[in-house]
Simulated assay, not measured.
Amino acid sequence: MKLTLALLAGATVLLAACNSSSADRAEDKVEDAAEATATAAGATPAALGLTELQLLDADLLGTDGTARGDIITVLRAPDGRVDRLLVEVENSDPDRYVEIPIQGLVVLTRGDSTDLVTTRTAADFDAMPAATLPTATPASTSTATP
Rank of each mutant, 00 (worst) to 15 (best):
E35H: 11
Q54W: 09
G65I: 08
S92V: 05
V98Q: 01
P45K: 10
D57P: 03
A26R: 15
I100D: 02
A41D: 10
E99S: 11
D57V: 03
L85A: 07
G42R: 02
T44R: 11
L56N: 04
D95C: 07
S22D: 10
I102L: 06
I72E: 06
E88A: 14
D28S: 15
L105A: 12
A36C: 00
L50S: 09
A36F: 04
A77V: 06
S22P: 00
P45V: 11
A43I: 04
N91S: 13
L53P: 02
L105T: 13
D28Y: 12
N91Y: 14
L48A: 05
T37D: 11
A43R: 09
A41H: 11
V98G: 01
G65P: 10
S22R: 13
L86P: 01
Q54S: 12
Y97L: 05
L85T: 07
T37F: 12
G69A: 00
V98T: 01
Y97A: 02
E27L: 15
V106I: 15
V106P: 09
L86E: 03
D59T: 03
A40M: 12
Q54C: 05
Q103C: 08
Y97C: 03
G62L: 11
V98S: 00
A43F: 04
D79A: 11
D79I: 10
P101C: 09
G104N: 09
I102N: 01
P101E: 08
G104M: 11
A34G: 09
V87T: 01
Q103P: 00
D64E: 13
A77P: 07
K29S: 15
L75A: 07
V30F: 11
L105R: 13
D28H: 14
A43L: 06
A47C: 12
D24A: 14
E35G: 01
A40V: 12
Y97F: 15
T37Y: 10
L61P: 07
D95Y: 05
G42S: 00
L60N: 04
L75M: 13
T66A: 14
A33C: 06
E31Q: 15
L105F: 14
L85Q: 06
D32G: 02
A46E: 08
K29L: 15
A26K: 10
D28C: 14
V106A: 13
L105I: 15
E52V: 06
I72R: 13
L55C: 13
D32Q: 14
R81I: 12
Y97W: 05
P94L: 13
G69R: 01
D24F: 09
L86H: 02
D79H: 13
L75K: 05
V74A: 13
D79T: 05
R96L: 04
Q103S: 13
P101Y: 06
R76P: 03
A36W: 02
L61I: 02
A33I: 12
S22V: 12
V87N: 00
D32E: 08
A23Q: 11
V82E: 00
E99N: 03
A43T: 08
D70T: 12
P94Q: 06
